[in-house]
């Protein structure tokens, strides 16, 4: 089909906060051969709802399938693809880097330039917390690497639309669907 141009997409889904829902989402991706580059899940203000943010890659047709298939899952309440909209995206990394007497100053300079924080100090190591988008984190990792990174832990991306566009449940009224007498017996229920 047309447009085979692959692009990175950040997609958020509001889902029922129930056991097994994450499995339904990841199972959908593996079963249909879609890829997931990163995935973040956490409860929202409404304890019955979780927010999944995932980063995936594909051409238009694949991304369209991904969002439609996500929407089709019974536990998925709402899906939003941020790509081509104004949005803020952040990841976080914890980086444990070797801190010798002669490199400490340089590490602190890098920390300053990247506006991140040293969150733990030991005789031999600094642990740095950095937030930003993917390229910022990749950049700081590149700089710290030759100073001796011992360990890193990285989150996936989380995202939020700028100003107006929101992915919230406020407008999503719960609908009450009354089954007509006849429909309780037949397929293809029609209101």
């Amino acid at each position: 089909m047309e447009n085979n141009h692959e692009q990175k997409h950040t997609i958020s889904a509001l889902v029922d906060n129930e056991p097994g829902v994450l499995n339904r989402v990841t199972g959908l991706f593996s079963g249909r051969g879609f890829n997931i580059e990163s995935l973040c899940v956490a409860e929202t203000m409404d304890p019955l709802v979780s927010r999944i943010t995932l980063v995936t890659r594909g051409n238009n047709q694949i991304i369209e399938q991904i969002t439609k298939q996500l929407n089709k899952l019974v536990n998925v309440i709402k899906v939003m693809d941020f790509t081509d909209t104004e949005f803020v995206e952040r990841e976080m990394a914890l980086i444990k880097v070797r801190a010798e007497a002669q490199t400490r100053a340089e590490i602190l300079r890098i920390v300053d330039i990247f506006r991140c924080k040293v969150v733990d100090v030991s005789p031999q190591f600094y642990t740095i917390e950095v937030t930003g988008n993917d390229s910022k984190i990749t950049a700081i990792l590149g700089l710290l690497n030759h100073l001796g990174i011992k360990e890193i832990a990285r989150t996936g991306a989380i995202a939020m639309a700028r100003s107006k566009k929101e992915i919230s449940l406020k407008k999503e009224k719960i609908v009450f669907i009354e089954m007509p007498e006849e429909a309780t017996q037949k397929t293809g229920y029609r209101p």
């Binding site: 309440i77 449940l169 999503e172 009224k173 609908v175 669907i177």
Partner: peptide, 13 residues
């Protein structure tokens, strides 16, 4: 129950 209450499932008819 007489009604189904599911905010996440609404097929388009």
């Amino acid at each position: 129950p007489k009604k189904v209450e599911m905010r996440s499932y609404r097929p388009t008819y």
